[in-house]
């Protein structure tokens, strides 16, 4: 009989028992609802072992890549070590600040190292703890290329955590972090026609990682990145992105300025919101993968626009970028 391993303990599965039933029988409080593979309420993650294909049916490709599966319909032929999705919130890492640099007036780049091994996908996010406050920051670094973990911190007016990171945290200080979390990352899917990334402000962070990840993994279909800000000086990484554009024929970068009259927008930049600039040149998004990050209104509107333009909901990736209520 095969075993289910959870938090270091092994549980033997009874004949034809699902992974979910096995855990429940052993007193583990796992969430569940329909028990027929439909509702996805019980979705878990396999840490080692391969869940059978039927238990991953109709999950997002990015979820499958993280080892997500539906334990209620999972009867594996091998041992499986599993984690509940909430478990990612429990392990706290200590990360040391090794670089602080302002990319413009409002965005601080932080680079961190971690003593422990910390595995993540470009585009996922971490939570940073400051006393009893928690804030999420997307990672801009690409693990196979960048040794340091990189965050782009937007200085929010009255933002306690962003001001603490900008003003008080010193090189060599340790940050308390949980993660990685989120399903907004590049995952190769054969049948896609292209990749669209739209971001505003520090929402460029995960997209900078995701676009480079796709390129480094040899994605050959068109990749379009539209990054928007009110003024040209609020954009950043413009030169680095233009260089990336020069070295990769299938990559096109559109810096977008929404706060100036059209004739005031500098040459080489587009006038308007980044989602409008994107949709003006892409009449159909059928079979496109779409990545969105930034202001919640922009993300929600663009999600709807992308879906109505033919993108499948499963191919639209956006992690919630929630503004904290002002303290």
């Amino acid at each position: 009989m095969t075993k289910v391993v959870y938090q270091g303990r092994s549980y033997e599965r009874l004949d034809d028992e699902s992974v979910l039933r096995c855990l429940l029988r052993n007193g583990i409080r796992a969430p569940y609802s329909c028990e027929s593979g439909a509702c996805q309420a019980c979705t878990m993650r396999a840490i080692s072992g391969t869940p059978p294909a039927n238990s991953q049916e109709d999950l997002k490709e990015t979820q499958k890549a993280l080892g997500y599966f539906k334990p209620c319909v999972c009867r594996p032929d091998e041992d499986l070590e599993v984690a509940l999705l909430d478990d990612a919130h429990n392990h706290k890492y200590q990360m040391e600040v090794v670089e602080k640099r302002f990319l413009n007036d409002e965005i601080l780049r932080l680079r961190l190292t971690c003593d422990e091994s910390f595995e993540y996908r470009a585009g996922q996010f971490i939570n940073i703890f400051k006393d009893d406050l928690i804030r999420s920051y997307s990672m801009a670094s690409l693990p196979v290329q960048d040794d340091l973990l990189e965050l782009h911190v937007k200085l929010v007016p009255n933002g306690v955590v962003s001001h603490w990171l900008c003003d008080d945290v010193q090189l060599g200080d340790q940050l308390t972090v949980t993660g990685p979390m989120g399903e907004c990352f590049y995952h190769e899917v054969d049948s896609t026609e292209g990749l669209l990334a739209v971001g505003t402000g520090s929402g460029l962070a995960p997209l900078w990682g995701i676009v480079r990840d796709a390129l480094i993994q040899g994605y050959e279909k068109p990749i379009i990145l539209c990054h928007g800000a009110m003024k040209p000086e609020n954009l950043y990484y413009v030169e680095a992105l233009r260089q990336l554009e020069e070295t990769h024929e299938n990559f096109n970068y559109f810096p977008c300025v929404s706060g100036l009259d059209e004739d005031e927008v500098p040459a080489g930049m587009s006038s308007g919101f980044p989602n409008d600039v994107a949709f003006a040149q892409l009449p159909s998004l059928a079979k496109w993968q779409v990545f969105l990050c930034g202001h919640p209104d922009m993300v929600n509107n663009t999600k709807k626009q992308a879906f109505l333009a033919g993108a499948s909901l499963k191919n639209i990736h956006a992690d919630p970028f929630v503004m904290a209520p002002h303290a």
Binding site: G37, A38, E57, D58, K304, F307, L308, G310, S312, L313, K314
Partner: peptide, 19 residues
């Protein structure tokens, strides 16, 4: 075809409703 077929249906159906 079960859950996978319903997923395909959700995209089509929801897009019609939203439009």
């Amino acid at each position: 075809g079960g859950g996978a077929a319903v997923d395909a249906a959700v995209d089509l159906f929801y897009r019609k409703v939203l439009a």
